[in-house]
Write a protein that binds this DNA or RNA. Structure first.
Length: 256
DNA sequence: ATGTCCCAACTTTTGGGA
């Protein structure tokens, strides 16, 4: 079974690449962030032609999250309690309970948006702490936090900025403490595994990246996982998103 | 050169967000 997460930075602008990527890589489930679409513009029919059911929580110009699946899609839960932005959607697809997350950026440490980001992460933690432990859980998406210095191209250059602050990293740690494993880091303890590169300053060519797109899984999913990898090729070529997809491959037989 | 890309709109240029 293959599950992927991808911040597409506008599904409208990225549709040709998304459709091509889905055909090439055949994910069973794709979690999408930053669709930047209202629900009435979401390409439900186009995904259906590719064999996928879709659940979308849209907002319009900003945010927007989705889960598309070819292995069933039920018990859709759009939105995080108390949040009025389109940043979280959960659904059950086959044997997995999946959460597609788009964590607030934070903007700057002294910006009110940063406080919103920390509160949002606390809300996600609370929702995950209350989950049904019998469900096999995958929490994935754009967390806008680099959990450690290994996840940064130059930690010194980022000092004093969002994405690397101690409160943000602590909030990620508290989410993991609900019983979730940062799978890319678990399987690749010494590789950076960047997932995002700024469009500016030729950042991709210089490999000035961050690992901010995470796949957090419970112990049962971790035990069944055979790979967790970043599709850097998707960050190249014409009109890429600034994020690359992160792919989780698992052996469904080992999910007991 | 706060350097690029994407969106909306009092839309053909500007401002907000990442």
């Amino acid at each position: 079974m293959r599950v992927a997460t991808w911040n597409v930075n506008s599904l409208g602008a990225r549709w040709p690449r998304v459709a091509h990527w889905v055909r090439e890589h055949s994910p069973d489930v794709l979690m999408i962030q930053e669709t930047k679409q209202s629900d009435d513009r979401f390409p439900y029919a186009e995904f259906a032609e590719l064999g996928y059911e879709s659940a979308h929580l849209g907002q319009g110009q900003w945010n927007g999250v989705a889960i598309v699946s070819r292995v069933g899609l039920r018990d859709v839960a759009p939105g995080l309690a108390g949040d009025d932005e389109a940043r979280h959607i959960a659904a059950t697809c086959g044997p997995l309970r999946l959460h597609s997350c788009y964590v607030p950026n934070g903007r700057a440490l002294d910006d009110p948006h940063y406080e919103y980001k920390l509160r949002w992460l606390d809300s996600l933690r609370d929702a995950l702490a209350a989950r049904d432990e019998s469900e096999r859980t995958v929490v994935a998406g754009d967390f806008n936090v680099a959990p450690s210095d290994l996840d940064c191209w130059d930690p010194a250059a980022l000092a004093g900025q969002t994405h690397v602050s101690e409160p943000e990293r602590r909030a990620i740690g508290e989410i993991e403490a609900t019983g979730l494993i940062d799978l890319a880091r678990e399987l690749h303890p010494s590789e950076p595994c960047f997932t995002w590169w700024d469009y500016r300053r030729s950042s991709y060519a210089r490999d000035w990246g961050l690992r901010i797109d995470l796949v957090l899984v419970d112990a049962a999913v971790a035990a069944a996982s055979t790979a967790c990898w970043v599709d850097r090729a998707e960050r190249e070529g014409d009109k890429p998103s600034d994020h690359a997809p992160v792919v989780l491959d698992l052996d469904e037989q080992r999910l007991s």
